Amino acid sequence: MIPVPEDVLVNAVEKAAKSVVNIASVRMLQDQLFRVFPVEGVGSGVVIDEKGYILTNNHVIDDAERLKVTLTDGRVLRGRVVGSDEVTDLAVIKVEAEQPLPAAELGNSDELKAGQIVMAIGNPFGLTGGPAVTAGIISSLNRSIQARSGVLELIQTDAAINPGNSGGPLVNTKGQVVAINTANMPYAQGIGFAVPINTAKSILKELIERGKVTRPWIGVSSMRVTPQLARYYGLPASEGALIAKVEPYSPADDAGLRRGDIIEGIDGDRVEDPSQIASHVRKKHVNDQLTLTINRYGRQLQIPIQVDERP
């Protein structure tokens, strides 16, 4: 039982559900005899702007030849992809409607707490009677899941998420969108994942204006230096980030960084973990400069690097 007054949940669903749409995507597949035939997939989305911008999952629209969007009032509109981002599994599509569409209110996913009640809303088949709703709680925050395109920071919930409501909103009891439903665990019950809405907010403008997300990059892979690692390999430092790989033709390669260098600082801040480098680079813009403090065979070097766009 969910210990919240029924009318609170009903009001939250009524507020958010009118912004939830069904997205049918048609992909052209080829069989062994090279015959091409259409395959239809289904997912959901949420209206984020009355001009017709809809937020959904990248995997819902990926490789689609045609997109058919069904609104809650039964209207069927043609959708086109405005921008997509494989790393966060998010995409924005647009429909042309004669009247303004009801846009959902976006909440603040940084305020979420484990145990908080949430509802997953989706419109899996565009059926009459409107979207379908499941309820549950936030099971865990900041789950790092290894996806095909990198590591996704996701919210875990036990609200039932199926392929049809993938791309639809996860809402709080105020009817605000706090995440975008993205996946379930096929072999486990009660484990679903959603992309935090603040992740979406941070890239929406870029997706709509440029169609893609530009990510800063320097091109090093590193591992944390521990006292045990330092002793075993005879390293000249007992903390920092040991460079395991330098991408060819990357900013790090151009700056002369080498495998075996130990990054001890970045722009004057001490580095104890590779995650500090990643988060520091993420805050930069393409063509910005940063300075790494490097320990190379016991000699300390200050190496400037110009941040580039991730290829």
Rank of each mutant, 00 (worst) to 15 (best):
P196W: 10
E272N: 08
N184L: 13
R148Q: 10
Y187W: 11
P102Y: 13
Y232A: 13
M28E: 11
Q32I: 12
Y232Q: 14
V171G: 06
I277R: 10
K174H: 15
G83Y: 08
D254N: 10
E111N: 14
R215G: 04
G126S: 00
L127G: 11
I305N: 03
V20H: 02
S279G: 07
P5N: 15
S44I: 03
I145Q: 12
V271C: 04
A120D: 06
V10C: 11
A120C: 06
E309I: 03
I203W: 06
N172E: 11
R27D: 05
M185Y: 12
T293Y: 00
D49F: 04
P274F: 02
G130A: 06
T199M: 08
A252T: 05
R310H: 13
L301G: 02
V8S: 14
N11C: 09
A252E: 04
F125M: 02
G190C: 10
P124T: 00
I180H: 10
T128S: 13
P38F: 00
I197F: 01
R258T: 09
E247M: 09
Y53A: 05
D85Y: 09
L170C: 05
V69F: 10
R210P: 06
A147E: 07
K283N: 05
G129C: 02
L242W: 11
A160N: 09
E153I: 09
G219R: 01
L170S: 09
